[in-house]
Design a protein around this nucleic acid. Structure first.
Lengths: 191, 191
DNA sequence: AAATTCACTTGACAAAAGGCAAGAATTAAA
DNA sequence: TTTAATTCTTGCCTTTTGTCAAGTGAATTT
C-alpha cells in the first residue's frame, strides 16, 4: 500500500510550511507502482512525471555512441525522480528511467506541477529546493568523479549508497562509476 | 562601460516575456566590475551575489584534502554566475569565485532576487530556467568526464570553450579536466 | 534435464595517466 | 637588466585501468 504520509513528511523535511499546506500538496499527487524492470520513461518520450519515490530503487541510463548502456544515476527511496531536461524543457528524452526493484510512490504531471506552483506559493520553494538539492548532488558527484580513483569512487558509493550495491547488478554500477566490469570486479575482490 | 541592454537581451533569450518586464528586471540589477584575479566570493563567506557576467572569464575553485587547488568550473560571457549551495542555502561557501580576466556585469543580492520573484512572476520562470540550464550543464559535464578519456575531454573543451583555453593557465584547465599538469601538457603537444 | 543466456571473474597483455624531478620558457620583481 | 618566481615541458619509471578472451556459476527457457 502506498502511504501518502511519507510524502507529507518528505515535503515537510524540504521546506518549512504548515502541515495543512503539505497535506494539500500531497493530495494532488497520484499513487503509482512500477514493477521491477519496467520503465517510468523511455528514450524519445517527453517526460510527464515528477515522481516521489516512496520505496524501491531506480536508475536512469542511456546508450552511448558505441551502443553501450551507461547508467547515469541511481534513485533511492524518499527522493524526487525526474528527467530534468525532458520534463522541464518539454523535449524528447535521450534517457530511460527504469525500476531496478519494484517501486511505489506518487506522481504529478507537468501541468499539475505548474498549477501547484501557481496555487501554492509554498510549493514554489519546494520546487526550487528540490532543483537546488539535485544540482548540488550533481556537482558533488562531478567533483568526486574527477578527483578520485575508481577504487575511492567505489568506496564512496559503499558509504553513501549501500542499497545500490545490494540491488543493482555489477554492470550498472561499473558504468555509473565509469569503469569496466572487469575493473570493478577486481576492485571488489581487493576489499 | 557596462551595458544593461546585454542583460535585457540575455533575459529575453531565456524566457518569453515582454521587453517592458525584462527592462524592469534588468533595472534592479547593479553594475559591478571585478579586476583580474580578484574574487567575487571567498571560502567561508556566505555568497550574496547572483551575477550576470557581461564580459570576462571567471572560475570557481576549492582546495582538496591534499591542499591542491581544484578548478571546478569556468564561467564565460553572457551567463549567470553564482555558487548555488552558498547562495541558495545561505551557508558558508567551500569554494572561491575568481575573475581570470577583468570582468564586468550586473548583480543582485539574495533578498533582491526573492523580492523580484515575488513582484515579477515572469522572473520566477527565468530563475527556474537558469537553474535547469545549469543543472543540465552539470549533468552533461558529468557524463563527459566519466565516459571520455582525458584527450577527448580536452578536445571537447577546445570546441565548447575556446576562450577558456585562451585565457586560463594550463594548471587551471588540468585540474578542471581531472588530469595532472604533465598529462595535459603532453596531450596538448600531440595535437 | 539439457540448453541457452546472463552475470561475474580471472589471466595476460596493452594503453592511459600519474609521480617525480630536471630543465626551458615566460613573467614578474628588484 | 638581472634576479627570482612562476608556468610549462619532458624523460624515466610506476600504477591504474582497459581490452580481449576464456571460463565459472547461476538463472531462465525449452
Amino acid at each position: 500500500m502506498n502511504n501518502r504520509e511519507s510524502l507529507v513528511n518528505f515535503i515537510l523535511s524540504v521546506v518549512k510550511i504548515s502541515k495543512d499546506d503539505a497535506d494539500q500538496i500531497a493530495n494532488t499527487f497520484h499513487p503509482i507502482e512500477i514493477e521491477e524492470k519496467d520503465y517510468l520513461l523511455r528514450e524519445n518520450e517527453v517526460s510527464d512525471d515528477y515522481f516521489y519515490l516512496e520505496s524501491g530503487l531506480m536508475r536512469t541510463f542511456l546508450f552511448n555512441l558505441e551502443g553501450e548502456e551507461i547508467t547515469i544515476d541511481f534513485f533511492t527511496e524518499n527522493n524526487i525522480v525526474f528527467e530534468i531536461t525532458s520534463f522541464f524543457n518539454r523535449v524528447r528524452s535521450e534517457a530511460y528511467i527504469q525500476a531496478i526493484t519494484k517501486c511505489k510512490g506518487f506522481r504529478i504531471s507537468y501541468d499539475e506541477l505548474n498549477t501547484l506552483f501557481h496555487d501554492k506559493p509554498a510549493f514554489r520553494d519546494f520546487g526550487r529546493a528540490i532543483l537546488v538539492k539535485e544540482f548540488i548532488a550533481s556537482q558533488s558527484r562531478n567533483y568526486g568523479m574527477i578527483n578520485r580513483t575508481a577504487k575511492e569512487r567505489y568506496q564512496n558509493l559503499l558509504m553513501t549508497g549501500p542499497q545500490i550495491l545490494q540491488y543493482a547488478p555489477l554492470k550498472y554500477i561499473a558504468s555509473y562509476l565509469g569503469v569496466t566490469d572487469s575493473t570493478l570486479s577486481r576492485l571488489r575482490k581487493k576489499m
